[in-house]
Design a protein around this nucleic acid. Structure first.
Lengths: 142, 142
DNA sequence: GTGTTTGCAAAGTGTTTGCAATTTA
DNA sequence: TAAATTGCAAACACTTTGCAAACAC
């Protein structure tokens, strides 16, 4: 299965997670969840909102991305020190990171997988396992 | 094998990779490569140098970490947006990241592994595969 | 000597914060 | 109207840069 995206009922989503459906959040949620899965940075999403004639401040974009992440609607992906990426597919999966373009792409789950998750050190529990396959254009020097 | 660390001949190392053995680089290399494998941030290394009465500016620490990384003596590990970590073990291996403390630990290579590295998208080649197992103190709220 | 490296301070980047004004319920 | 949310601008944390002085070969 390619990953179901059954309802883009953005309003319902916000209610479900207990966030007030403000104009800004609705607009951002629409941009994020209305189509295919996406990987965005705050700046990109902000620019996109502007482009769509939605007035939102960058600060609100940041706040919203974090609220959505806490609510489980987004997943943060760490691939670049100094830039945060958010993935609208919050389920467990791995990523290609295109170093040249600075973009992310989901890895189809059939393709890889860990053959064994290691025992976490005593007193700790695993909060998440991230797998990032960094790729670059074939021509590039290593 | 636990990972051989045969020579801490810091001077020879620098020569090998074509970096002039300046006082600063020698001192930093010593701090980095003289004992066990380590995971450091620029700030930590800088503080350590200060503690060891080595006069080095933070800018030089940054420069040096990057030069060592380009030279293959270090490997950068991305686990935190807004902070760069460098690993003195530049061989291929994976990490635990302790979210509470913000520290890294190598995962013994026997323990995990990818069961299959995915085919990189056309026109690209894999530059590296990063696996980060994020752990947190058991008591912590999720 | 010549080219490299250093340190400083300034500038840069991405992100967070304080708070008054606005909006939601 | 009470509580939550927004936007702005200032503050932040970390990193990079420009350039003159110091250093390595």
């Amino acid at each position: 299965m390619t990953h179901p995206r059954p309802f883009s009922d953005v309003l319902a989503r916000l209610k479900t997670v207990g966030l007030r459906p403000t104009r800004q959040r609705l607009a951002l949620a629409k941009l994020l969840f209305d189509g295919e899965d996406r990987h965005v940075t705050a700046e990109v999403l902000h620019a996109e909102a502007q482009g769509a004639k939605v007035r939102v401040s960058l600060a609100t974009v940041y706040n919203t991305l974090h609220q959505f992440t806490s609510a489980g609607l987004l997943r943060e992906v760490v691939v670049d020190p100094g830039r945060s990426y958010f993935d609208t597919n919050s389920s467990d999966h791995h990523h290609f990171f295109f170093e040249n373009r600075g973009t992310l792409q989901d890895i189809p789950e059939e393709t890889v997988s860990l053959s064994g998750v290691p025992e976490p050190p005593a007193g700790t529990s695993i909060s998440r396992v991230d797998v990032v396959v960094r790729v670059r254009d074939e021509s590039e020097s290593s």
